[in-house]
Amino acid sequence: MLFAHDTECSLIAAAALVNTAGTGEGLPDVAALDDFYVAHAYTGRHEHTEAELASVRDLRPRLRRLWDADVHEVVTIVNGLLREHDALPQLITHDDEPYHFHAVPRNAPLAIRMAVEAAMAVADLIRSGELNRLRICAHPDCDNVVVDLSRNRSRRFCEAGCGNRAAVTAYRARKAAARG
C-alpha cells in the first residue's frame, strides 16, 4: 500500500464516479447509485432518492477537473471543496475499520461526503508530490480517468478493458507485419 487505505479507497471511488459520466450514463437511476454505494464501501447516510442521484451526478464534472488541471488549479479545487463543505478532519473508527479520516459527519449528504473524501485523498497526493498518479486512460479511443496506485507508476489504462484492447491491437499489428 502506497497511501493510507482510506486515501486509496477514496481515489478509486472518485475515479469510478468520474468515469460514470463517460459515453453512456453510468448512473442511470437510483438503483445504480445504490450499487455504486455498496461497491465502493460507502457508509453513513444514503437517501436512495432522485435528488441524491442528481447531486452525485452534479459532482462529477468538478471531480473530473482534478485529472485535467495543473497542480495550482487542483489545489484551488481541493481547498474550495473542503472550505465549501466546512471540512474538519478527524480520526474515526467504525464498522471494524482501522482509524481513518472523516472530514464531514457521516450523516452529511452523500455527494458532500464523496466530494470531501475525494478532496482529502487528492490533498494526500499533492502533499506527497504524487499528483501525477491521476491520469487519463492511454487508449486513443478512451477519455476515462485512471488512478495509478502501482509501485512503479506503470498503470496506463482504465478499468473499461482498454488495456486488453490495446494488447489485442498490438498483437494483431505484429501478426500482420510478420505476414506482410
Rank of each mutant, 00 (worst) to 15 (best):
I126S: 10
L82P: 03
C142R: 13
D58P: 09
D86N: 12
R135I: 04
R83W: 08
N107G: 10
R83S: 07
G80K: 00
I126G: 15
Q90G: 09
D58W: 06
P140C: 07
P109T: 05
V146F: 14
E52L: 01
E117R: 09
G129V: 08
F101E: 08
E117Y: 07
P109C: 06
T49V: 00
R135E: 11
R45V: 03
R133K: 09
R113Q: 00
G44H: 04
L131N: 11
R45C: 05
M120R: 01
R65V: 06
N79G: 04
N144P: 11
I136K: 15
D143K: 13
A123D: 02
L131G: 14
R113S: 02
V104W: 03
V145N: 12
L63F: 06
Y99H: 13
V78A: 01
A54N: 01
R64H: 09
P61N: 01
I112E: 13
R60L: 10
H48N: 05
L66K: 01
R106F: 07
D58R: 07
L91N: 11
L110I: 02
I92R: 15
H139P: 12
R64G: 06
E97I: 15
A123Y: 00
G44Q: 03
R57D: 02
R45F: 01
P61L: 03
P98S: 08
L110G: 07
V75L: 14
E73D: 09
R60Y: 06
L66A: 00
R113H: 03
L59S: 05
L59E: 05
A103I: 02
I136E: 15
L91R: 11
S128I: 10
Y42L: 07
A121L: 05
G80L: 03
A111H: 13
V56R: 08
E97K: 14
S128T: 14
N79A: 02
A138M: 07
D68I: 10
H100L: 00
H102G: 11
A118V: 05
R135W: 15
C142H: 15
A111W: 08
L81S: 01
E130W: 14
L131V: 15
I136N: 15
A87W: 05
R64C: 01
E84Y: 04
A41Q: 12
Y42A: 08
A119W: 00
P61I: 04
L63V: 01
R60P: 14
C142G: 12
R45T: 03
M120F: 04
N132W: 13
V145M: 10
P140E: 11
N144K: 12
E50R: 10
T93P: 10
E47Q: 09
G44N: 02
E117I: 06
L110Y: 08
H102S: 10
C137V: 13
D124Q: 10
H94Y: 10
R133G: 09
N132E: 12
I92H: 14
L134E: 02
L131K: 14
T49A: 05
L53R: 00
D58M: 04
H72Y: 12
